[in-house]
């Protein structure tokens, strides 16, 4: 038995337990369910990597594991892109808030508060 299926499934198990807790906390959580499915797939592929061979053939890639790595990289790129978009949006929202606060709180010179 190789070591990596054990390590992988261990990590996956932790992730699944964590995600399962999240799911039980709030009902509308399709997103978490998708992640759980993904981790289960990782466990399956870790123990039976041969399963990826037919998929790889389908896309014209010689080895099953290569296919998995490529899929993983594409997925990570997608996640980074999504995070970037989200961050951009948050930056814009933050600017809007900061600007609003600034415009509402003009600093006025007040003789009485001079010693503040």
């Amino acid at each position: 038995m190789l070591i990596y299926p054990i390590v992988f499934s261990f990590i996956a198990l932790i992730a699944i337990i964590y995600l399962y807790q999240k799911v039980s906390q709030n009902k509308s959580s399709l997103y978490y369910v998708l992640w759980i499915v993904l981790w289960f797939l990782i466990i399956i592929f870790a123990f039976v990597p041969e399963l990826s061979n037919p998929l790889a053939k389908l896309f014209g890639i010689a080895r099953g594991l290569d296919f998995l790595v490529i899929v993983a990289i594409i997925f990570i790129f997608y996640l980074i892109f999504k995070l970037y978009i989200k961050m951009d949006k948050i930056q814009q929202d933050m600017t809007a808030i900061v600007r609003e606060i600034a415009l509402k709180n003009e600093i006025k010179y007040d003789k009485n508060n001079k010693k503040e």
């Binding site: 933050m94 600007r99 600034a102 415009l103 709180n105 010179y109």
Partner: peptide
Amino acid sequence: SQEKYPDNIFILNHIINRGMGAAIRTGMDA
């Protein structure tokens, strides 16, 4: 400076740094 020229200087404060463009827009809105 505002103490010296209270009628000429108006100050607005961005509580965190949001960049040159954001500051100019705030100033222009004001």
